[in-house]
Amino acid sequence: MILARDIMTTDVVVVHPDDRVGDVVQLFVQEGVTSAVVIDKEGKIKGIITDGDIMAAVRQRRPVFVDLFNSLFVLEDNNDLTTKVQFLTPRPVKDIMTRRVIAVGEDASIAEIAGLMTDHKIKQVPVVREGQLIGLVRRHDIVQAVARNAT
């Protein structure tokens, strides 16, 4: 049986909740990754930030509510992409990260991990030992393990 410890990536990109989103975007580009695990000073997982979280934050449409003569009007957010990105980049990671993280222990089977990924529609699962991050299993890691064992 193939376990998380057999296929996990141990070189995990990590960031902190107060890091700026703009810095994380640069880190994604430099490291060639699409996600980072968000940890606190004690190394505990606080969340995960992905390219999808960043795209959702950029895309987010904020309606503007105007009270005029006791009537409420809703105006669309017509800010262009540049304005939205400028607003987003100085914000802390904790403002847009996914807080609910599905993690597994190092003895989790790839079948279990694949099930979690499918059920929760996620692309990676942090691997923990005694509450500390020790690795990350990505969908790609599972596909590679299946391909190796299929021959």
Rank of each mutant, 00 (worst) to 15 (best):
Arg61Ser: 04
Thr82Trp: 05
Gly32Asp: 06
Ser35Phe: 01
Pro90Phe: 00
Asp77Gln: 02
Gly105Ile: 08
Ser35Cys: 00
Thr118Gly: 04
Ala4Trp: 05
Ser109Arg: 11
Gln60Cys: 04
Ala111Cys: 15
Gln60Asn: 11
Arg20Thr: 04
Gly47Tyr: 03
Ala147Gly: 00
Thr83Gln: 10
Thr151Phe: 06
Leu72His: 01
Gln144Arg: 15
Met1Lys: 12
Val24Glu: 04
Val125Leu: 15
Asp107Arg: 12
Thr118Leu: 13
Asp23Asn: 06
Asp23Ala: 07
Thr151Glu: 11
Gly105Gln: 09
Met55Ala: 07
Asp107Gly: 14
Arg138Glu: 13
Ala4Pro: 08
Lys41Thr: 11
Val128Arg: 08
Ser35Lys: 02
His120Arg: 11
Pro90Asp: 11
Asn149Ile: 10
Val101Tyr: 09
Gly131Tyr: 10
Met8His: 11
Glu76Asp: 10
Ala150Ile: 12
Ala103Arg: 09
Ala108Glu: 14
Ala150Gly: 07
Gly135Thr: 13
Thr50Pro: 13
Val38Ser: 03
Leu3Gln: 13
Arg138Val: 01
Val58Thr: 05
Thr9Lys: 12
Pro92Leu: 06
Leu136Ser: 07
Thr89Lys: 06
Asp107Asn: 15
Asn149Ser: 13
Thr118Pro: 00
Val14Asn: 05
Asp119Trp: 12
Ile7Trp: 01
Thr98Asn: 04
Ile48Tyr: 03
Asp53Cys: 05
Thr151Ser: 05
Asp80Arg: 00
Asp11Ala: 13
Pro17Ser: 11
